[in-house]
């Protein structure tokens, strides 16, 4: 069985309008794939569909996680199957501490009747927090409540580190980060890179790719992938801008 996240000919409607058009993309474990493109081209919709958001209607296509079809799975089943979504706008959960939240998430991955060992849980949690330069006092703070933009994104990476997914989709993780926060978040992701993790890094800007160097870059336009290449493609986009893509891949109907 191939160890990869495979999106095959995926089409998605939102409120009757097609947003994703026959999109195919494969992210093998151990690789980081950047997905770039102008705003409104369907990048975040793709992320949400993969994570299992209930508002999106898949009209055709398949998504396989290590060969297993996931489109019929609920959002929590997908997460337990190894998929992680780093949100662009993480929710605030008043009254639920980070420690309790992560405990529940790790507990959900254990067999029925098996209990988390509290001591080793906190040991691991503190290690990961130290790496991400998150104050240990945050464990008792409510999830994302009153967090700055940078703290929320670091908290997303902390969750990713604690849940050890096989595949992570990072939706505009760089948005709203200053350069210091961007560096910390990127270092956190780089530490998690390795043969057991595949990353789909969704971004509008090339900037984060200076820190998290991708193995492949894909360009999305008008709901599908129009160009793929190596990391140099990101630089090219940065220099030429997205207008170049828009002109090159304008719909034939528009040209006629």
């Amino acid at each position: 069985m191939s160890k990869q996240l495979e999106i095959k000919n995926l089409s998605v409607n939102v409120e009757g309008t097609q947003i994703i058009r026959n999109l195919s993309l494969t992210v093998p474990r151990g690789e980081v794939h950047a997905l770039m493109g102008p705003n409104g081209t369907g990048k975040s919709t793709l992320a949400k569909v993969l994570a299992g958001h209930p508002d999106y209607e898949v009209t055709s296509g398949e998504v396989f996680l290590d060969g297993e079809s996931i489109l019929d799975m609920q959002v929590d089943e997908r997460a337990r199957a190894g998929l992680f979504m780093a949100f662009q706008y993480p929710s605030e959960i008043p009254g639920v501490s980070i420690a309790n939240f992560l405990r529940a998430a790790r507990q959900a991955r254990l067999e029925e009747g098996e209990e988390i060992d509290a001591v080793s849980f906190y040991k691991t949690l503190y290690e990961k927090m130290d790496l991400l330069q998150i104050d240990r006092k945050f464990t008792s703070r409510a999830v994302n409540e009153g967090f700055s933009g940078g703290e929320k994104k670091r908290n997303e990476i902390l969750q990713m580190a604690m849940l050890e997914p096989s595949y992570a989709i990072m939706d505009e993780t760089d948005s709203g980060l200053d350069i210091d926060a961007l560096r910390i978040v990127s270092e956190g992701v780089n530490r998690l890179r390795g043969p057991n993790l595949g990353v789909l890094l969704i971004t509008h800007y090339q900037r984060i790719l200076d820190y998290i160097v991708p193995d492949h870059v894909h360009v999305m336009w008008n709901g599908t992938i129009v160009k793929s290449g190596g990391k140099e493609l990101a630089r090219e986009l940065e220099e030429k801008g997205y207008d170049w893509i828009k002109e090159a891949f304008a719909e034939p109907a528009g040209k006629a």
């Binding site: 959002v75 929590d76 337990r80 979504m85 939240f101 998430a105 959900a108």
Partner: peptide, 14 residues
Amino acid sequence: QLYYLKARGISDKV
């Protein structure tokens, strides 16, 4: 909030 928790693998009930 419910979606966020479930996206971490936590069941609907929990």
